[in-house]
């Protein structure tokens, strides 16, 4: 499966990663190579095989409904690149 530059640009946008123009060509080639390589999976017949979600053979463990966490705004905000008045700050969003 060959991917083209537009597809790579679309996926990069979806993943919010800026790819400089001069790298797009090479990246397109690498992704194509990887996708061609994984293509060999299509030769296997997997009809009726359940997809595996987890190797852990148990049901989801649940916790009790109790307030045991939070109330640590200092820890939450400690590493923030930009913050103000107890909030995180980001470039203004226009909805």
């Amino acid at each position: 499966m060959a991917v083209d530059k537009d597809t790579v640009a679309r996926i990069a946008k979806l993943a919010r990663i800026r790819i400089p123009e001069e790298q797009q060509e090479a990246l397109t080639g690498e992704l194509t190579e990887i996708l061609n390589w994984v293509e060999q999976l299509s030769e296997l017949d997997t009809d009726g095989v359940e997809p595996m979600t987890s190797v852990v053979a148990m049901s989801l463990p649940k916790r009790e409904d109790a307030v045991t966490d939070g109330n640590c705004a200092d820890k939450v905000l400690k590493n923030a690149p930009e913050g103000a008045h107890g909030f995180f700050a980001v470039p203004k969003v226009v909805e």
Binding site: V38, L41, S42, L44, T46, V49, E50, P51, M52, T53, V55
Partner: peptide, 15 residues
């Protein structure tokens, strides 16, 4: 389906 689910099915076969 072609990639991700296919891979998850093969993961079952490998296990």
């Amino acid at each position: 389906d072609a990639y991700y689910n296919k891979a998850r099915r093969i993961r079952t076969l490998i296990a």
